[in-house]
Design a protein around this nucleic acid. Sequence first.
RNA 1: GCCGACUUAGCUCAGUGGUAGAGCGCUCGCUUCACACGCGAUAGGUCACAAGUUCAAAUCUUGUAGUCGGCACCA
Length: 977
Amino acid sequence: MEIAKAYKPKEAEESHYQKWEANGCFAPEINENPDATKYSIVIPPPNVTGSLHMGHALQHTLMDALIRRKRMQGFKTLWLPGTDHASISVQRKIVEQLRAEGETPQKVGREEFLRRAWAWKELYGNTIVEQMKREGASVDWSRHRFTMDESLSKAVIVVFCTLYEEGWIYRGKRIVNWCPFDKTVISDAEVKDETRKDGKLVYLQYPVKDSDKKITVATTRPETMLGDTAVAVNPSDERYKDLIGASILLPLTNREIPIVADEYVDAEFGTGAVKITPAHDPNDYELGLRHNLEQLVIMNDNATMNAAAGADFEGLDRFKAREKVIERFEELGLLEKIDDYEISLPVCERCKNIIEPLLSEQWFCNMDEMREMALDLMKNEGVPHFYPQVPHEKVYTAWLENLKDWTISRQLWWGHQIPAWYDAEGNVFVARSSEDAYIAAGTGDLTQDNDVLDTWFSSALWAFSTFGWDGSEPPAVAGGFNADNQDAENHPSATADGSDLEVFSPTDVLVTGRDIIFLWVSRMMMTTKKFVNKVAFNDAVITGTVLGKDGKPMSKSRGNGVDPLEMFDKFGVDATRIYLASIATGADIKWNDTQIETYRNFANKIWNATRFCLLNSEGAKVDAESIEINSRNETSSADWKKKYELITMSPDELQKIIQKEQNLSIADRWIISRLNKTALGVNRALDKYEFHTAVSLLYHFFWDDFCDWYIELVKDEITKSEPSAVADGLTSLSEISNNELQPPATADGSDLNIEARTRIITIIEQSLRMLHPFMPYLTEELWQKLPNTSNQLHNAAYQSAEQTIMLTDFPSGDKSAIDERAEAEMQAVIDVISKVRNIRAEMQIKPSDKPTIHIAANADAQKIFAQNEAQILKLARAESLVLSEKLDVPKASAKAVTTLAEIALPLEGLIDFEKEIARLENQVNKLEKENEQLRKQLSNANFIERAPAEKVQGIRDRVAEIETQVSALRLNLEALK
RNA sequence: GCCGACUUAGCUCAGUGGUAGAGCGCUCGCUUCACACGCGAUAGGUCACAAGUUCAAAUCUUGUAGUCGGCACCA
């Protein structure tokens, strides 16, 4: 088999995805087990205008890892993909497109505009979807949904009408957040605050009518004075008491406005007198209502001044008008002063333009009922369970508690048009269709509302509208959410019909960013509870933000963005994915190229380790039994005895034979123990969404344990063509037991250690399975190359599927396969090798020089070292091993101590005594330092008394160990001096 | 103004009561027959600061400083 020397990601990424999809691996229907538990995730639908960014890549990686593991575990998994119609963004694209042609939306009309929008969506709307395929995302494309699909749109209409009929949705005139760039209202949740240090507080003097007095008001938006309809003061403010009820002659306008008293005014702030612009400020609006003030709108929808602002100002941009107002006041001698003022401005989340508070008639959704539903879920059931819980649960709850009405209409054309019709008199008819509206109105002469719904209105339904809910099904359970109103027609719900809605809802987990917890997560919880009486999802994994190298959020304007596709090209999809998983701690993280390189190297390491095993795989195959400790032990206790009962044998001898047949060296039992520990840890971590822990466990198991130690320890066994002593003994036994792994003869007649090869291949295979959810391409590529892999290795739920690693059983880890004794014994061997290597490095012994290693240890430990003699000699590059109770070596020896042994390397002529003394002293110092700390603890009577006995004993043992080692090192030092 | 998070090795970050960790970087050595995207061996930290709780604190409590976030206010 020809295998490239280095992993080439692109080759692996080329074909597997297509094959997986073509074979139906992504769809839940691949699961043949009728009793399989479902596991479902809906994707946060990316905007059709979007292209893949690092945040998507991160979230998709996590979702895919979760889905792939569950699928391998035999769950009936569905990861549902889709896209969001993104009202404003698409609208903006089309407006730009029209502008380029010298057209405007108004000129071409709504119909043409929408035609173009759909065409745009068809052409570009799948960009991100295609990019997701590159990621390896195992989503079920047959269930792809778009928020403006027919059934999803129907769901929107039903929800709107239901909420309207129940009185939660209403139309009203309010101060709203107006974006002059997008020319639409936006909701509070879409407004961000931006602090500006260069703000100004302008003090304007208003002359009082029939008086020479003037009242000074302070404002950050002087242009709004053109819409002032009062000046307000605090009723108890002595300075203005006599002016209450008097009138102001409002400069520049020829209008006369009252001076009113209101508790809202803070006498301490500014001048204590406030200009009141009810149509352009929410507080002024409220105050205006209390005092019956006129509401004078002075701006157009693009934030230029309108006729009401006066002929001098009409048509001026709001900021130009601001300048001009200040100029004119100065000319009139009414400009008192201008102070510098740090101000926070509301800006549009998407286009960053400054929001204009504006009086406007809009549709609103009263959130009282749904807020309570969401709060109840959180308080009674703790749903959704946020990961990480802190701070999200608290922030989410606090937000809900203070939730105000939601502005749901938008002055846009692209989106779900509001199902409300008006007759000539302006009467409104909300209906599920125009026909229904005509019937209700008794006339066909109706006009539908021009506005569309907030994009988040349809995404709020995503957790059930995507499963086919369109409100047409009658409820299976009457009411349940509203005791007063159990009208079935108004409360469609799930039916027990095996539909996707019944099977896959509620979803298991939502993975998303913290920026849309309010906009989306909360609203899905609410609407899903209200309309299908289920939770939308049980868990909510909130990822941190991937920041640029400068520690700031990635953005085009900052130029600090990192394109996932570039990373895919440069480092490979798998490296990028596992890197992203490794940083998924929930905290924000700075992008770091060197870290992704680490995982690129890791991918190459996996490739090469597998390559090595494959180059030595003749006669071997993947065989789970080869690494199953348990079944073998069971065999040994019962069957084996039976098998050999005719043979006269002492129990010890029998045990020996069993051990030989098992052919499991300390290294084997050690790596099997490590493998199972890793599997248990990885599963435990993923169950808690601790992706970084899972990755770290896999990384270190594979690289450190498997590659650096296991492969090196068994290398000879695997590569040597002549049979080892152990394997030799195996031959005859295998015949007795009909062992199918009986070593065949190779072409040149030499025997191979098939068992060892099978074992290492099997360990590789298990490792690849565990790595698969993070590195799907690499693992599939390699798995397909392993000898005798087939769909026999699949989880029982996928027995008839085309062979692929993605349907193999995910290793669960076997607690009983953990062998602490083997791990300790292996550690003793590793310690010896490391110490010898340390001596070699410090004494600068050439690689070609092969010293003799003397080890002094007790009988048990000697046995361990004897069993691993070949490995110790090879890995420590030594000639021979001398085992004894006590060291007997020349003075010119370098020495070291481990927990179980004293080590000496006779280095006649090679040793530098100064260096050796320094080396030993260094070790003594380290141990003494540790010892000092431990003894301090032991000398504390309170510690002895109160700490757990186990802990105290542990420290006593360690002290004893240190002292043994120190005295040994001291003796060595004395000998040198 | 209120609430919260963070501060650990040169860098980027793990680590929730019991001997301080990883990757990268640094230093030294190695064309050791899977891998130089590699192998081996070192060095490097008063865990922001201060006080407290505890036999024991990076970890719990309080305070201080800095960084960042959410909410409110913003005449």
